[in-house]
Structure formats: structure tokens, C-alpha cells
Design a protein around this nucleic acid. Structure first.
Lengths: 218, 218
DNA sequence: CCACTAAATGACTCTTAAGTCGATGACTCT
DNA sequence: AGAGTCATCGACTTAAGAGTCATTTAGTGG
């Protein structure tokens, strides 16, 4: 690679550093953070397209028009990248879980709120990364950090359905199995959802809810 | 490893060769085939437990009490192993597809037959391997061989549901979306199914069918 | 203009695991 | 017993890709 290439590479997506005045040091930290986020988003997209193990750090660096060692300025290692992608995805659900916990809706209504949030998770690059890449490539330590979060999501939906059965908004059913069925069904959207398409997460949620509510019997 | 260890290793699961008389050469070929099958089953189990990329050929060889180069006597390379695992799994579905094609049942009834077979696929080690490992680790060439088969399964279920809607045994619905929902839901069983448990594939199928047929409305 | 820090990189090292090869033991048939 | 396979393995090569480090460049504040 020639000298001028390198310069051109660095020029394109790298945000120009703005004056890190002592009075307003926020600016430079923001820059660092926004570059980190760009790194994760780019990595997640790459993982989703080619798979975690088929994506090298050189690939990710190339997408960012940067050399591999630069990544290590923002991130500890490859495992760390995936871990953070998962964390960012889960953060999105955290709010939805809290919201349904606080609200005084029926189980059915809560299920709708919760599942809409979940579908949005599953359709965004970080969520797709969770579903498609999974926890397997992570080190056992990183996996141990994420497993409780994943379990909490499952437990929250179980809780919601149980409440629904109690308040009569959902019919009697095997709660664990039903939860697994619904989540499995929603997860699978990560494999065919297309960001550019006309079908938006909210649309899919409605159609799936309809299917799960009224069933296929004529 | 000492000399005697090696001998002991070879002794245990390796079937003793039986006389490959010229008059009955079948015997020795069977032996070769059964060892190949053992290899694939062992590999599939290993992939399911640790993931494809976390499973080395040495791991698989160790499980078979054999040295790595021995594997290459039965198999071209690692890609070949995974490809064959997927092939073996799909073969199971082939029969079910043909059967539903030939039969004169209603769409609903065909769906039941088909989905029972599919659930059995998903719960057996090779099927789990398809779902959990996926096609991503395969070379593009191998992937190209399997993709049409996967599509055929999806298309077959679509066909069945379409017929069900036509003959009135299934209510009007978005056929593609419904197919994806059902298959996604069934696929996810591969992640929690436990061979030793009391819940058998047929039981899960019934419960899931019930859910999809009658829905969750009270 | 100079010292300082943030950011980036070229050119390495190191490890892991896939795949190869020649030699050897086991069994059968004549 | 000797020839001829089948099956197996120890020891090796090779490639890829993660991670490191010393160095350079660019922008900033005094």
C-alpha cells in the first residue's frame, strides 16, 4: 500500500478531531465513543454477513478504512467486540422489560409491548448478531456474563404469559413451552429479515401475534 | 503416548475386522461404512456440544479413540464431515416429503405428518447440527449443494399449507410468513431438546400443533 | 515553534489446527 | 511362509489469523 493510499483511507470515514478544549473535553471523548460504536456496528454487520469465524479483524479494519492495530486502540480483542455487540443488543431489551414490569396492562397487552421490542431487537444488526452468531464463539467468561441476561428475557416473557393466563387474557397453556415457541419463532426472523424491505418489525410482530392468538384453524 | 496405550485405544470401539472372503465381500464394506457413520455421528455430537469451530479434528479422533490421520482414511476433510452430517439429516426428510406428496389427506393432516418428521429431524444429532452449526462454516461449493434441499423443505411446507387453505382445513393466512414462523419455531427446539428427557419429539409436535391451531386467545 | 497527547500503522511474533506422508502393524488368501 | 491389502499412526509441513510493539503522524495549547 502506498503512502497516499493510506492517507486517503484515513481521510474518509474517520471523523476529524475537533478542538479538545480543556473547558469542554466532552467533544473528544464523544469522538472516541462514536468511533467505538462505528466499530461495533461494522463488526456486527460483517459477522451477520459472513459469520464470526469467517470475519477477520483485517476484514473489519478494511471496512473502516483503517489498519488492524488501530482496532486494538478501541477494543481489547475479538472476543471483546462480539461481547460488546451482544451487550448493546440486550440493552435495548432492558427498557422494554422494565416498562412491562411497571405498567398495569393485561398480560396480553404486555406481551404485545414486549414482543414488539423483541422483534425490533431481532431485526437490528446487533440483535441479528446475537441470534446468528450466538454465544458459542465467546470465551466461557464472556458467555457467563451474557447468559443471565438471556435467561432474564425468557423469564420475563414467561412471567408475562403467566399473568395473562391468570387475568384471563390468555388461555390456559404450558407456559415454558409456549414461551420457547414464541421466542424461537421471533428469533428466526433474524435469518430472513431485510432492512430494505417493505415489511417492518412492527408489521411482522402484528402478523405473528395474530397467528399465535387466533391460530390456523378455520 | 506409550505403545500399550495405543493398542488399548485401538481395541475399544473399533470393530474387529471379520473375514472379508471374496465370496462375501459385503462384510468388509459394511465395516467401512459403519465406521464412517460412527465418525459422522461422533462429529455431529461434538459440533453440537462445542460448536464447529471449537471442535478440532483431534477432538473427534480422540472421541473415536483414533489418531487424526485415520479420519482422513474415511473422509476428505473437515468440510466434508459437516457436509455429510447435513446430507444424512436431510435424507430423513426426503421420505416425509414424498409421502405427503403422494397421500390424499387434507392439508391439515399432511401438515401433521410433515411436521412430525421435521421435529424428529430437529431432535436428532444430525438435524441439530444443521440448525446449530448452519451452512456458514461450509465452503461455498458445499453450501451450494445443500441450499436447494433446504429450500425444498420450506417449499414443501408452503405447498401443504396452501393446499390446506384451499381445502378449507386451514384458515386464510399469509402462506410464506406462516411457513417461516412454523419452521423457525420448530427449529428452535434443536437448542433445548434433551435426548434423555421425558418430552419426546412426538409430544412436542402435538403441543406445538395445538398452539398453532387453536392459538392463545381464551 | 515546541512539547504533548491522541491516533494510527508497518512489520513483526506466536499459536493453533488443518492437512500430508512414509512407515508399520494386522489380517487374509494362496 | 510370503504376498498383498486394509487400516492406522507419529511426525511433519503449512497457512491463517490473532495479537504486539516501536515508531510515526496530526492536531492542540502554551
Amino acid at each position: 500500500m502506498t503512502r497516499s493510499d493510506a492517507v486517503e483511507k484515513r481521510a474518509s470515514p474517520t471523523v476529524k478531531r475537533t478542538k479538545p478544549k480543556w473547558g469542554n473535553p466532552q467533544t473528544i471523548e464523544d469522538q472516541h465513543r462514536s468511533k467505538r460504536e462505528a466499530l461495533f456496528l461494522t463488526a456486527a454487520r460483517a459477522f451477520n454477513e459472513a459469520g464470526f469465524h469467517n470475519t477477520t479483524l483485517d476484514d473489519i479494519a478494511a471496512r473502516l478504512h483503517v489498519a488492524k492495530p488501530t482496532l486494538y486502540y478501541y477494543v481489547k480483542n475479538k472476543d471483546d467486540i462480539l461481547l460488546e455487540c451482544h451487550r448493546l443488543a440486550f440493552a435495548h431489551m432492558q427498557d422494554a422489560i422494565e416498562e412491562t414490569k411497571r405498567s398495569s396492562q393485561t398480560g396480553m397487552e404486555k406481551a404485545h409491548t414486549f414482543l414488539l421490542a423483541y422483534m425490533e431487537l431481532v431485526c437490528n444488526p446487533f440483535g441479528q448478531c446475537i441470534i446468528r452468531t450466538g454465544l458459542q464463539p465467546l470465551t466461557p467468561q464472556s458467555r457467563a456474563k451474557l447468559l443471565p441476561i438471556a435467561r432474564r428475557i425468557n423469564a420475563s416473557l414467561q412471567e408475562i404469559i403467566r399473568q395473562g393466563v391468570d387475568d384471563g387474557s390468555i388461555r390456559e397453556c404450558d407456559i415454558k413451552l409456549t414461551t420457547n415457541a414464541i421466542l424461537g419463532c421471533f428469533n428466526s426472523v433474524a435469518f430472513w429479515y431485510n432492512e430494505g424491505g417493505t415489511l417492518k418489525p412492527a408489521d411482522i410482530t402484528l402478523k405473528y401475534m395474530d397467528l399465535f392468538l387466533d391460530g390456523l384453524s378455520p
